[in-house]
Write a protein that binds this DNA or RNA. Structure first.
Length: 163
DNA sequence: AATCGTCGTTCTT
DNA sequence: AAGAACGACGATT
């Protein structure tokens, strides 16, 4: 069903899981080397994933993304993830702004939950979502990654509220 | 820093 | 099938 493939980047080897529909999950480099079962994944998808990932890591807007398979998310989560795709490189939104964008004002906290459940970090840029007043907020993969990604996109520490 | 309101998801009855 | 508990939140005090 799901095939895992290794995506090499300047930051290490990400692992990507592809379904028949497209890219379904992505995980940050974890040190451990895992097996690559993605021999029959369309090379185009792999190429697009690698190119998009490296583009964002360079702080550039990716030309195009591979097809994304959101089908494992709830309706609400899918709405949030789609809303995140609109945020350009170097831009940020607050959890509350996303809540409004998906027609659920007041659900800022629930948006945080949906961001945490985002199966395709980086390409679905949950790292561009901050808490109110430019506070950093959280990140499931660890705040070091959120900081690094934002820094690559030109969002400096200075623009973020400390803490 | 402590507290409360809010709301989708997950865990327990 | 409810109901309680739990957060990558936000606003108030």
């Amino acid at each position: 069903m799901m095939k895992r493939t290794i995506i090499k980047t300047t930051e290490g080897a990400f692992h990507a899981w592809f379904s028949d529909e497209g890219l379904a999950a992505l995980s940050f480099p974890n040190g451990r080397s895992e097996r690559d079962d993605g021999a029959d994944v369309p090379v185009e998808w792999i190429r697009q994933t690698e190119a998009a990932l490296n583009a964002i890591l360079r702080g550039e807007q990716p030309k195009q993304l591979p097809p994304l398979d959101f089908s494992r998310g709830t309706e609400f989560q899918q709405k949030v993830w789609k809303a995140l795709l609109i945020i350009g490189v170097g831009q940020t939104r607050s959890y509350s702004e996303i809540a409004h964008a998906v027609g659920a004002p007041g659900a800022a906290r629930a948006v945080g939950g949906a961001c945490g459940a985002n199966p395709i970090p980086v390409l679905v840029p949950c790292h561009r979502v901050l808490a109110a007043n430019q506070r950093l907020g959280g990140f499931s993969a660890g705040l070091k990654w959120k900081r690094l990604l934002l820094a690559r996109e030109g969002v400096g520490e200075a623009e973020l509220v400390l803490r």
